[in-house]
């Protein structure tokens, strides 16, 4: 177990190293952040001074070494645009993104499980077919397009929900969250729904497939034959069969939800870290881009590890470390 964990940690570090090197070199290749950072009327002397103070006058390999040295101490550089440590910037926005992603996951589960069950139990019925058709639509609709239509309908035409931004926040265990205030909930609903749509389709289809499979399993047939009520058969036997794969997939997909928040946050002006990434790309804020990716890698490694461990705990057939296919 300890060996396995160390191995995973080693892999994660290697990923971080490779990725930071690629991004470092890549952003360097696009262009000189100085050109956009210095005020238009600054003299060449000012520019040189600024470059020196940011370490941008050094050759690339030395800049990278300095970065690694600082990263080892948990410092991922100071944002060019904000003149604040990049990690601080990201951690400031992490709660907003996590809140959005968690809300979207909950929406996907709360709507997806009943819909999937219904479609799985009555595959030939009209609702069953409609749900399946809807799920294909959910897979197909581009997130940004749906976001647009949601704003059009609920904010502009009906005027029910605020069009953009995050609502009032309250501190919960030191973290600012918005779902505890009415204003916050109003702001959260549309972006969360927008982000949830794809996962909702995914969960619906997973649950439907699992339900159909479960219904054909012997013990479920047996339970039905024994005369157990339909509710009990579904509630206990079928649901148990489908929950493990659903939880696994939803867990693994949480990372992609955080990444796709880039689009939703852009449309709804949600002050999360996805929007920060887009803005940072626009101004070549290299420390923030690199730090964003580092934080995301860590997040994914943690999630994947947690899911692996959970699967091992749930299913004795899974052996950790022996992942040859």
């Amino acid at each position: 177990m300890a060996v396995y964990l160390l191995q995973r940690l080693g892999q994660a570090l290697l990923v971080l190293l490779v990725m930071s090197l690629l991004v470092f070199a890549g952003v360097y290749a696009i262009g000189d952040p100085m050109a956009i950072m210095i005020p238009p009327d600054a003299s060449q002397a000012d520019a040189a001074r600024l470059a020196a103070s940011l370490g941008l006058d050094q050759p690339l390999w030395r800049q990278y070494l300095v970065f690694l040295q600082q990263a080892a101490g948990g410092k991922l550089g100071v944002s060019f645009a904000f003149q604040v440590p990049a990690v601080t910037l990201i951690l400031e926005r992490l709660p907003a993104t996590l809140e959005l992603a968690i809300a979207a996951t909950l929406l996907a589960l709360l709507l997806g499980i009943p819909l999937g069950l219904l479609a799985g139990l009555r595959p030939k019925s009209f609702p069953g077919r409609a749900i399946m058709a809807g799920s294909i639509l959910g897979f197909s609709l581009p997130t940004f397009w749906v976001g647009l239509l949601l704003i059009m309908l609920f904010s502009v035409q009906l005027g029910w929900l605020p069009a953009s931004g995050r609502g009032a926040t309250l501190e919960l265990l030191g973290v600012p969250v918005s779902f505890l205030t009415l204003d916050g909930l109003q702001h959260l609903l549309m972006p969360a729904l927008n982000l949830a749509l794809f996962k909702l389709a995914l969960v619906t289809r997973l649950v439907r497939a699992g339900t159909r499979e479960a219904l054909s399993l012997d013990y479920v047939r047996f339970a039905r034959a024994k005369g157990l009520t339909e509710a009990r058969v579904i509630g206990v036997h079928v649901l148990r069969n489908i929950l493990i794969p659903v939880v696994t997939v939803v867990g693994l997909e949480f990372g992609s939800l955080v990444a796709f928040a880039v689009v939703t946050e852009t449309i709804f002006a949600w002050p999360g870290m996805g929007k920060l990434l887009i803005d940072s790309i626009n101004v070549l804020d290299r420390p923030v881009i690199v730090a964003y990716l580092c934080v995301t890698v860590l997040l994914f490694v943690t999630i994947n590890l947690a899911v692996d461990l959970a699967c091992a705990a749930l299913d004795p057939r899974v052996r950790l470390g022996g992942a040859e296919q």
């Binding site: 952003v27 796709f260 790309i281 990716l293 995301t296 994947n304």
Partner: peptide, 24 residues
């Protein structure tokens, strides 16, 4: 296979976003 793991452990949109920012 490690490179494949690397790609699969990242959401596609993130990889494409950073790549395109670099490529133009």
């Amino acid at each position: 296979m490690r490179a494949a793991d690397l790609q699969l452990s990242f959401p596609s949109i993130l990889i494409a976003l950073v790549l395109l920012a670099l490529l133009g």
